[in-house]
Design a protein around this nucleic acid. Structure first.
Lengths: 298, 298
DNA sequence: TGTCAGCATAAGCGTTACTTAACCAATGAT
DNA sequence: ATCATTGGTTAAGTAACGCTTATGCTGACA
């Protein structure tokens, strides 16, 4: 590659003016410096770039070609720097956020919608997925911050480069329709009776269900019959209401139905399982105004 | 604009490796120098470009944006420099040539065709037009060289930046078909009889005809009846053979017809008018291999 | 013909980018 | 645990090289 990029800038300025003196004036340096810089560049490229005509530098075809390469770069650069400047003046630009599927498609989009009312110059790129996929992307700089079910204490042991702050706690209940409840469980909530039911979950791994059972019975229940797997809270909710089986949903989403009795939650006496979402950011990363404004809510 | 382009090169290298140490190794400078350069760039832009993660530099979104600007530039630059290098190794690239309409569309294209047989990597841009239009373009660096009816002595007085070398001399004759000749001129070649004829010329200004008359009679004949104006020697030739009138053509093109008697040339006793074409180049301009090879013919 | 503007070159200086060195932090091997 | 290793930062001194000043040259213009 070329050794000295600054000579290209000098060349660029000369070319625009077809004059070293004019270029020198524009750059606030001496004409001699410009001349020397050009000479060095020509010697470096072993190519004549200008024909010295009296009071004028006439570009050769090589110079023309070189200029065609540099000109768009300078233009883009100026635009880019102006954009950087603008981003510092107030909330604008792109925010790249990662989130778990459920949280991302439910809570996050609401937040985004509300935020964009106030700051329409901010755009969003939301990546949904498991924290195991999202954390590496955060660490690689592909995301500005992520939401994940990781907590400051446990689990954050081997993540020193991240700052983790709790953001949201919501109770998760195992629920089904009133009809399903009376037909399949009818009062006797033994683990065995439960385990024989039909289940709804968000992923093939049944992580949501497994967590729920471990939390309530300190025991894992492999081989649950997952009759429906779909990565959508709304879909699970509808499946529950339709009497397909038992599924995990945030309690507040079925509050009305629970009160009315059309949906039943499985209660074990223990406190409900909590879905704890944390905000995870790169330690030491400065937040642009857009990011700062968005995170003020938390 | 940005003050220092070289810092951008350092940034570019860091970004590719996500590491200052690796960048330093690639650039054969110390890791400390890289770190300092990056620090200065960030301070200059007042923007954090990398998050310092242990043993890794994680780019911020600003860095990503900056990289998107620099990367294509570097790619284009490398390509361009390679191209420059290739041009020096042998005849290739683009040759931008100016020429008078007649010469350009007749002789030049033949030369180009022959040349491209030997050097197919050379492309041509031919600009046809009057020397008055072509000379400024040559002086502005838009053309590599031009052909023009300018001569080393006369006319080249106020053109010190150009080198002019004669290239071609051809006799120009005023000719018509044998039929037209006997019907309209029939032996008596008085200027008055001539002036009353029908004429064919290449341009509205009748420069070819005016030159011919001035050369042979030291007198201008305004108001000649130009029954056909077309910028094509071939067309004029056909018009002559078709008996439309009198037109100027290079003598060698009608040699066979003159000998056979099917075409007649108007002879005044004076030596024929010469069409003298010179090669005009910018003084001090180095010729690339392609240019050198092409001009060897002259 | 003299004056002016622009480019090239030489020499010396001054800025600044680079090196060296010391320090810190995180990682992984012993 | 502990230590060696690697990478990044910072400070200070040095050396390079880009800039300035000065001079000479050439062509344009009045």
């Amino acid at each position: 590659m070329l050794t000295d990029f600054n000579r290209l800038k000098v060349f660029y300025t000369i070319y625009r003016h077809k004059s070293a003196a004019a270029a020198a004036r524009e750059m606030y340096i001496s004409q001699s410096a410009v001349s020397q810089s050009l000479g060095k560049l020509e010697r470096e490229l072993k190519t004549q770039l200008f024909v010295r005509l009296h009071k004028k530098l006439v570009p050769t075809s090589a110079a023309g070609r070189l200029y065609e390469i540099i000109e768009p770069f300078v233009r883009n650069l100026e635009g880019g720097l102006a954009w950087l400047e603008a981003e510092k003046s107030g909330p604008r630009g792109v925010l790249r956020i990662g989130a778990p599927v459920e949280f991302g498609s439910r809570n996050l989009v609401e937040l985004v919608a509300a935020f964009r009312k106030k700051h329409p110059a901010v755009f969003f790129e939301v990546a949904l997925g498991h924290p195991d996929m999202l954390l590496p992307r955060l660490a690689a700089g592909e995301l500005d911050f992520i939401f994940a079910d990781i907590f400051p204490g446990r689990g954050a042991r081997n993540l020193p480069p991240f700052t983790v702050s709790p953001v949201l706690k919501e109770k998760l209940v195992l629920a089904c329709s009133a009809g399903y409840y009376s037909a399949r469980l009818g009062g006797k909530l033994t683990p065995a009776a439960l385990a024989g039911c039909e289940f709804l979950d968000y992923s093939q791994g049944q992580t949501a269900l497994l967590n729920w059972f471990r939390h309530h019975y300190d025991k894992s229940f492999p081989g649950l019959k997952a009759v429906l797997t779909v990565e959508s809270v709304q879909a699970i909710l509808n499946a529950i209401k339709g009497g397909l089986g038992l599924g995990i949903v945030p309690e507040y989403l079925v509050e009305a139905e629970l009160k009315a009795g059309s949906v039943k939650a499985v209660r074990t006496g223990r406190p409900e399982l909590l879905n704890r979402i944390s905000l995870v950011r790169l330690k030491g990363k400065a937040a642009a105004p857009a990011e700062k404004a968005f995170l003020e809510n938390f």
